[in-house]
Design a protein around this nucleic acid. Sequence first.
DNA 1: AACGAATATTCCTGTCAAGGAATATTTTAA
DNA 2: TTAAAATATTCCTTGACAGGAATATTCGTT
Lengths: 114, 114
Amino acid sequence: MSGKNPGMDMTTLSALAEPNRRDIVELLCGGPLTVGEIADRLGLRQPQASKHLKVLSDNGIVEVMAEANRRIYKLRPEPFQALDSWLKSFRHVMEGRIDNLEDYLRELQNQKKS
Amino acid sequence: MSGKNPGMDMTTLSALAEPNRRDIVELLCGGPLTVGEIADRLGLRQPQASKHLKVLSDNGIVEVMAEANRRIYKLRPEPFQALDSWLKSFRHVMEGRIDNLEDYLRELQNQKKS
DNA sequence: AACGAATATTCCTGTCAAGGAATATTTTAA
DNA sequence: TTAAAATATTCCTTGACAGGAATATTCGTT
């Protein structure tokens, strides 16, 4: 159980941790957009938009499609599926599992006596 | 649809973006642990373990319980539920939705003529 | 009260990432 | 071929953050 989620690239979290990138991702949720539109709607300068999109692209979160002058970016499903799969590891925690806290306390007591 | 996920504190992602903190979280998945054990099992120095745990605690990802000399940390379900809920916003993307790319291209064409 | 174990905190330093501004690149149109 | 639009890239500066080392704090034990 060393690599619990082989398909889950953990850098996905880092990429999504940046607020502007999260905004971009949520915006792209509504469908593919060009760099210019993304920058406009989010109040970003074009270079920063490009930079953030590059990070997202490097992480496989978005993909590009060249259309003449423009670059159309859109979301890729895989990272979100992987993230969802990773989250499932915590499902038993989320379900309010009765944790074995008392067992653990007993453990601590035993250690003390050794 | 301004605040898409009111319960979702987005700083959760930042907290989980750090590798050691992710390790801590996955370790705590197996049940509550003291600082010392966390540090031991992950090969961290105690101060760094404490610091990371503080970040996780500030973000509501873990909670502490004082037991004599030790502090027992354990996961809190809420952030994971919120994260899961946020991910659901992307479910249609994750399902490999047929995006309206052609519609968008048509839009771009129309703009060009105006 | 004093000591030791477990944990938290502080200070310092280096690294890295994000924004700003300018510029390079690519493509279309004239 | 030149100009203009759309996008990418570079350089620079600054702020945030993680680790290291030392120290403070808290609690039980004797």
